[in-house]
């Protein structure tokens, strides 16, 4: 990760975003964006999971600790979950992790949660564009537990 950051210093800053996509809706929506050749920034690195409910809050912390500039979690629309309620499980966890990260001083916009169905290729592209813009505006992730008042970085 470090090496890429050096490289991009001179160019326009291009964030790297870990994207957790559920297999049934959002991953299919992302495929549909491809089929429709709907262009979006090459910023996401996809990790396919069966369901957004599979996403352990730990993963979000891990991604941020590993230098990802942002995290996108995308699942089925409420009520559409292939596994009935996995996306609600995800939503509960996500609300929690978001307030925790806020508490430790991480910019809220680095992590996003969205719903994209299998029929929404265009929407998927819009979501990625939106996330990329928000994360780009914040600049590179300088470490999740960095303490601003001169304390040691704790990782």
């Amino acid at each position: 990760m470090g090496e890429i950051q050096v490289e991009t210093e001179n160019k326009k800053y291009e964030p790297k975003i870990a994207a957790f996509l559920c297999n049934w809706c959002s991953y299919a929506g992302a495929d549909l964006a491809g089929v429709g050749r709907i262009q979006y920034p090459a910023t996401i690195r996809t990790i396919r999971v069966p369901c957004s409910g599979r996403i352990n809050p730990l993963y979000v912390l891990k991604a941020m600790a590993n230098g990802a500039d942002g995290v996108l979690v995308s699942g089925c629309h409420p009520g559409d979950c292939h596994y009935i309620s996995g996306n609600y499980v995800a939503r509960r966890k996500f609300a929690l992790i978001k307030s925790l990260l806020n508490h430790v001083g991480l910019e809220e916009d680095r992590i996003s949660f969205s719903w994209v169905s299998a029929a929404e290729g265009g929407r998927f592209a819009e979501v990625v564009k939106g996330v990329t813009e928000r994360v780009s505006a914040l600049g590179p992730n300088n470490g999740i537990f960095k303490v601003v008042d001169g304390g040691a970085a704790d990782e």
Binding site: A30, D31, A33, G34, V35, Q39
Partner: peptide, 22 residues
């Protein structure tokens, strides 16, 4: 393909970078 070359058709370098990562 669906999530890389087809959606980053005008950015071959970034697409290649992404393909490596994926």
């Amino acid at each position: 393909r669906d999530q890389c070359s087809w959606v980053h058709m005008h950015e071959p370098e970034k697409a290649t970078e992404k393909a490596k990562d994926l």
